[in-house]
Simulated assay, not measured.
Amino acid sequence: MQGNIIEYRDELQSGLIRGADGNRYQFGINDCKSVIKPRTGAEVDFETQDNKAIEIYVLTKDIASDVKDAASTAAIATSSTVRAIIRKIKIILPRLIAIVVLGGIGVYVFGVVVPEARKEALRKEQLETAQRENERINSLLIDANAKCKAKDYDNAILKYEEVVNSSSSSCELTYPYFCLPRGTYPMSECFIEMKKPLKALSLIGSPTDHLDNGQQTYGPPIAKVHRYIIAARAYSLLKENDIANFYAKAACNNGDCSLVEK
């Protein structure tokens, strides 16, 4: 027989069916054999026994209830998924932080510390190289001065030339208008001792102050004094006494009066 469930109570797990014959039949949840749960309003197919419904099969679903159950199931699933995601985040987040921190440290070390250390090592190496070269040049100058004083002129000049022509020789005195390599002045003085004034003048750039209406050479005082002294001695050897006196006085005006007659 077919009929409809006119009432069903979950808490009592029992209900009432009105059959196609117009009669009402009680039933319990154990009498329902279908997979679909009994609900109020559902169509059913059933057998009767002692004015009770048995072998009940629910033919229609309560869509609203199904939707509610589905929503509840989805909510539970979503909640479980969220909890699972949170658990994973809790596990992964410290690792990610550690990776970021270590990565940052690595970038700093290899991008800043290591290059700076290399630059510092290079600067130190360059400084040590320059210091060794300076010591070598000083040693050559001492040796050349000693040979010139001993009148070993040929070997003295060779030593001076090595200093002057050295690729690492810096300017003895630098100014916008001239630059004389290290060793120039002592080499010029040695040429004066050798009685070769023209050689000496060529080394110091042949000052022409005496031709410029008394305008003095540009440069720091010590540079001017050296050039004037050598020029005065060279022109004296060339018997150009007026020019020699001019440069002797010019040297005196800049602090060295050793060549001015008392």
Rank of each mutant, 00 (worst) to 15 (best):
S202P: 00
A64M: 13
A42H: 02
E11D: 15
N254R: 02
A223P: 01
K147C: 04
K61N: 11
D66V: 11
E135P: 00
P186T: 10
I222C: 06
A200W: 00
N241G: 04
K195E: 14
K147L: 14
Q216P: 01
K37T: 07
G205I: 05
T73W: 11
R18E: 14
S80P: 00
G22A: 11
C257Q: 03
A250P: 02
Y160A: 08
S79T: 07
S169L: 01
K37V: 06
I56Q: 04
D69M: 11
A234K: 01
E135Y: 04
K33Y: 08
Y185G: 06
R24S: 14
L203T: 02
S236K: 14
I230M: 12
G28T: 10
V82F: 05
S168W: 03
V58A: 03
A248K: 07
Q126M: 09
N145G: 05
D154H: 08
E172L: 14
N213E: 12
N253V: 02
L102P: 00
I243S: 05
S166C: 06
T174Y: 13
G103L: 01
T73D: 13
I17L: 15
V107A: 08
G106K: 00
R118N: 11
P207I: 05
E261C: 01
Q215Y: 08
F191E: 13
S188F: 04
P94L: 03
I230T: 07
I230H: 02
L211Y: 03
D31P: 01
D66R: 10
